[in-house]
């Protein structure tokens, strides 16, 4: 680790890492397939409804953020937000373009959105559709409005994600609009986990100019199966920050010899302890 970083600076870095601002993304074959499918959508000329479906922690929000960032000029990203007034789905799209402005509600796609569509903004992303519709009590009419956005004259491609079973059922019942389902698996094969850890530490070291070695993860657990990406990243974040703040007790020479071989994953309980200690040091 770089010695010249003050405690204040190290705490700032740890805070950013714990808040997920490191921006780390890992690409393994299954994940690349998702990105390729989204890339194909960005290039496609026809409008359609696209649903990303996967378990909690599969990284759907991260995928959508990365996609929105890559196609910045083409994408309107609608995320859950608290509004002073009830806004329908179309209204929320306009608000996503100008987040600090207020506009009246629209029952049909307004000309302004169509004009912005001509300007290149042709993809609308609704991340966590269930929360967005819940906030505005729009469950019943959500897909009607989304269909309007996909149809004439807007011709937007709408990408959304949800784990709400009712919305999924409604989505599968859509007949008059072209739909695509992209399954997202969050499981990283056991053979790739070490690569995830190395990549994470490399990314953070590069971004925050630190020098923390991934070997600090060794000796804290034993991974033998495929693991969800969010769990690996959670462990990496916790251990990286703990090492940055010198919060992991050094193992004795005997303990190290007793471990025998290097291990990758950490016992869940131990991770929680480390995370708790780090958060206490950083946020309190």
């Amino acid at each position: 680790m770089k010695c010249d970083l003050s405690l204040r600076k190290r705490r700032e870095i740890a805070r950013a890492v714990l808040e997920g601002l490191h921006g780390f993304q890992y690409y393994w074959p299954e994940r690349n397939e998702v990105y390729n499918a989204l890339d194909a959508l960005a290039q496609a000329k026809e409008a359609k409804l696209v649903m990303l479906s996967g378990q909690a922690g599969a990284g759907i929000s991260s995928i959508l953020e990365a996609f929105a960032s890559k196609y910045h000029g083409q994408v309107i990203l609608v995320t859950p937000r608290v509004y002073s007034e009830r806004l329908n789905m179309i209204g929320q799209v306009l608000h996503a373009i100008f987040p600090f402005s207020e506009f009246r509600n629209h029952n049909r796609v307004p000309d302004s959105l169509i004009a912005f569509r001509k300007g290149g903004r042709k993809i609308i992303i609704f991340d966590d559709l269930d929360i967005i519709t819940n906030q505005n009590n729009m469950h019943e009419v959500a897909f009607d409005q989304l269909n309007q956005l996909v149809g004439f004259p807007g011709y937007f491609t709408v990408i959304m994600s949800t784990r709400c079973k009712k919305l999924m059922r409604d989505y599968f019942a859509i007949k008059r609009t072209a739909t695509t389902l992209i399954p997202v698996s969050g499981l990283v094969p056991a053979s790739c986990t070490q690569d995830v850890i190395n990549s994470f530490f490399e990314r953070c070291n590069q971004q925050y100019r630190t020098n923390i070695h991934p070997s600090c993860m060794a000796g804290l657990g034993a991974p033998e199966a495929d693991m969800p990406i969010d769990r690996i990243v959670f462990e990496c974040e916790s251990v990286y920050c703990a090492e940055l703040l010198n919060l992991i007790p050094r193992a004795s020479e005997e303990e190290r010899k007793a471990d025998g071989k290097r291990c990758l994953s950490i016992a869940q309980e131990r991770v929680s302890q480390i995370r708790h200690t780090v958060e206490c040091c950083v946020f309190i």
Partner: peptide, 12 residues
């Protein structure tokens, strides 16, 4: 946010 309102109202 006059410029935003002017553009959106011009179109809408």
């Amino acid at each position: 946010d006059y410029s935003v309102q002017a553009l959106v109202s011009y179109l809408d």
